[in-house]
Amino acid sequence: MKNMKEIDIPIEASVEQSRTNPLARVFDELVRFCRSRSMFMLHYCTGCGAIELPPAMTSRFDMERLGIQPMVTPRQADILLITGYVSIKTLKRVILTYEQMGSPKYVIGICSCTVNGGMYWQSYATAKQLDQYLPVDLYIAGCMPRPEAVLEGMRKLMDRIRSGEADGWKDYYRRYDWYLGNQQHLFGDDWQTPADVIGEASHYDLAGSGTEGEHTHLLQQCQKPLEPQQTFFQIGGSLEVKGESHE
């Protein structure tokens, strides 16, 4: 099998460089059009806003006519829907999931809680601003937003993909150090994920001055080799979850 780094994946980043082929612009346009018309959103219900997604997806509002379908695995999904508040425990899983998704990927924050904590502003268990930990392309406000609002938000995202404005995933590579710093602030200094974000950033040619910094150095210092997860099933024992990064 070929090494990952040798596979040449055409990406949007090259648009900014000078293109020699006169058809390049047309081709990019076509790629973006196709991307905006076939979006798979990850089937992950993080909070209460998820209750309005089944109506949005099924017969009455029927999101499928816009080319949006639920997808069960992160690696094949394009959209990560954060449907409402994220507890700190969920946020870890959300970040792991996000880093597993293939670029280009988009994050939509649904409900007021993702913007500023919403009605759980004094809760010790939920993270307050989602865009400190993940690059959010679009917010859909409301508590909770109606299916029409979800559809409207999806159409907006489609427009932004077509115009090339939805590039939060690039921001994650460019300012990885800042995002990682916020994550470390919340989860502790030994926070790590199995994804090699810096390597991916340089692969996509998106590594910049903000990609590496003090926080990524801390990550490299604290990084431990992945170990098999400890067993959960000890008779009379406790549910030890060690090595969270495996999940």
Partner: peptide
């Protein structure tokens, strides 16, 4: 980092597996 760090998880020599069912399922 990944290639050097990555270790295959050795399975026990039985038909027993442990599986995380959720939260993203």
């Amino acid at each position: 980092m990944r290639p050097e760090n990555y270790q295959a998880i050795s399975h026990p020599p039985s038909n027993e597996y442990e599986l995380n069912f959720g939260p993203n399922h």
